[in-house]
């Protein structure tokens, strides 16, 4: 069993205690999307504005656990001001990090998992370094039940981008 410090990194606790970009933008004109985690009842509201192909503003509302809240906060900081294609790449990379099998992580649950690590080829190389602060969330993969907490805001954001594109 991995330790709590793998899950609750300091940066995660910081974003949990002082979430960035908190609130809701006026919708319309902003896109408003709600996300639900049926497992724990967490609800998230992402409002975003896309101007000239760029996520010009984003705000996060709703309630959830430290992982879902900090992931949403980190996400908002990472995507604000970025062109949509870059944001989509980031979503893909982040979700890729969240789907890495436990046994491919160097400090994972020990034993046989590590032995197999070299043999498992990742379907798509994930550049975790490119994620910056978001990489702090990679320990979540070692706690499989919590992965959905971390990806909730990202799935909701992806929906928001789809919605905004379908209107464009």
């Amino acid at each position: 069993m991995p330790g709590l410090e793998d899950l609750y990194r300091e940066i995660i606790l910081d974003h949990y205690r002082s979430p960035r970009n908190r609130g809701e933008l006026v919708s319309p004109p902003a896109q408003r999307v709600e996300g639900f985690n049926p497992l724990c009842g967490d609800e998230i509201v992402v409002t975003l504005e896309v101007t000239d192909g760029t996520v010009s503003d984003i705000k996060i509302a709703g309630t959830g656990c430290s992982i879902s809240q900090s992931s949403a906060s980190l996400m908002s900081a990472a995507v604000k001001g970025k062109p949509v294609p870059e944001v989509r790449d980031l979503i893909r990379t982040f979700k890729g990090m969240m789907s890495i099998h436990e046994s491919t992580l160097p400090s994972a649950n020990g034993g046989s998992g590590d032995a197999d690590a070299d043999e498992i080829s990742e379907p798509e190389a994930i550049d975790i370094d490119s994620l910056g602060e978001l990489a702090a969330l990679q320990g979540v993969v070692k706690f499989p039940v919590r992965i959905k907490c971390a990806t909730l805001s990202w799935n909701t954001l992806a929906q928001g981008l789809d919605q905004s594109e379908s209107l464009a």
């Binding site: 709590l4 724990c40 992982i67 706690f143 919590r146």
Partner: peptide, 9 residues
């Protein structure tokens, strides 16, 4: 504290 965090700890 969120129940999820409580349960985890």
């Amino acid at each position: 504290l969120h129940p999820h965090d409580i349960s985890q700890i």
